[in-house]
Design a protein around this nucleic acid. Structure first.
Lengths: 240, 240
DNA sequence: TGCCAACGCGTACACTGTTCGCATAGGGTG
DNA sequence: CACCCTATGCGAACAGTGTACGCGTTGGCA
């Protein structure tokens, strides 16, 4: 229905082949966002673009490669802000961390892929963002390898926390429930399962009476850990 | 061939049904460790146990449930040591973190499952270890919810780091290469890909001339971040 | 004009998880 | 002892998966 122009291609010569890596990746992303990882099959993607399932293999080596491309695309959404003060590494790092978290939560299906991502560390977007953040840390006084270590530490924390969040989110989406319905459904199960474990029982009871807002809690917990990590990383910086 | 006795069943009455949840999970684990996640199909599992693929559905609701059981089994391998000094929370937490990392690396295929683990937080082994660690932190002076937050922070970091490591390990295993062969194969690719990114180029060059031992580096990096996180968490403790 | 590479399609294959009905075997009850 | 009834495993079948292969078409270049 939409007659939109292809708008982006790598080399502006020859005819536009109606199927492009960019178009395929974008469409895959749309399906994934709308219906989750399990919904994405080559035949489904073909139906979405009005082509056969096998058409994509002219542009993409395999479904695995397609998925690597899609995952790398997530990194394109990360915004890196460079502070005016070259010594200020905390603000950019915090922003980057929150941006990465937000990007993953925007595409919760990606949680299931981080553990499988083979070479995706070499994806262009991944590398570009990594490079720029290392640059920020370096100009703020971190030696090169320390900057790499620091960034890697932060990134591991962010993905670790966020994968867990996204997994829950993705599960909710698969069952077509919003957050409230989900906790309402799962709380009794969790509480009953916790009966055998004294600390967990007390913890759940306390959280129940407090009536936690799950969203805010998760955000707080994320910031909590992140702040602590940054505090600690400060010591690795050669305060010139 | 092996005529080993069933050795473990939940209820010691009636006849031993030749297929048990425990046996199924253990066999699945064996296949996974030997050949990775993709190799585990119901038919393959059937071949392993000399049964049809459909036999398992009497003992397990679905393949997903089987996988949740297997993942929870990983947590059974975590060792929790309680220090003599009740105020010492660092040693047990460090030990637990290293134990979790080791357990995941012992079963690298699990990396691909952490993002999908739906209710596995409610697995018995998962809950037991969590409960005990919260206990350790609480007796060391953390208020209940702070203990939970702290443990959660550490766990997120550990899984975040280790998933990335395990993903690489699992990829190597799938291609039947050891670590040396792998770096030898991938290094030129990575180095070439990094040409466009100044900081990464310098970083790789530096690491190349230094001749890093990948194993030691990863272990160091893990301990580095972990130590920093524990340092920071200390402040959450009410030093009674 | 003729060629040739790029592209998309249809078919086919080997697999996957799972459902359903059937055979069987063994313990509990009469 | 005879019966039943439940638990268990099996075989066939189904819908759906990724992808290899060969065929037509088509558009740009010599």
């Amino acid at each position: 229905m939409q007659e939109q122009s292809p708008s982006v291609w790598t080399r502006p010569r020859k005819k536009p082949p109606a199927l492009t890596r960019e178009l395929i990746v974008a469409t895959a992303m749309r399906v994934l966002d709308a219906e989750g990882l399990e919904a994405l099959s080559m035949r489904r993607l073909g139906a979405e673009l009005g082509t056969a399932a096998t058409a994509f293999y002219r542009h993409v080596a395999s479904k695995d490669e397609l998925i690597e491309l899609v995952v790398d695309q997530i990194y394109a959404e990360i915004e890196i802000v460079e502070s005016d003060d070259p010594a200020d590494w905390r603000a950019p790092t915090l922003a980057c961390a929150h941006s990465l978290r937000a990007a993953i939560l925007r595409h919760p299906w990606s949680a299931q892929l981080f553990g499988a991502a083979g070479l995706s560390y070499l994806g262009p977007n991944t590398m570009e963002k990594t490079d720029r953040m290392i640059g920020v840390l370096e100009t703020a006084g971190f030696p090169l390898e320390a900057a790499n270590r620091a960034l890697s530490t932060v990134a591991s924390y962010v993905t670790g926390v966020t994968i867990a969040e996204a997994a829950a989110l993705s599960l909710m989406a698969r069952n077509g429930l919003n957050q409230e319905e989900w906790v309402e459904l799962m709380w009794p199960v969790a509480e009953r399962a916790a009966q055998a474990y004294p600390r967990l029982r007390r913890l759940y009871a306390a959280q129940h009476t407090a009536g936690v807002s799950v969203d805010a809690t998760r955000e707080d917990q994320f910031s909590f850990g992140l702040r602590h990590i940054l505090n600690s990383l400060e010591s690795e910086r050669t305060t010139a």
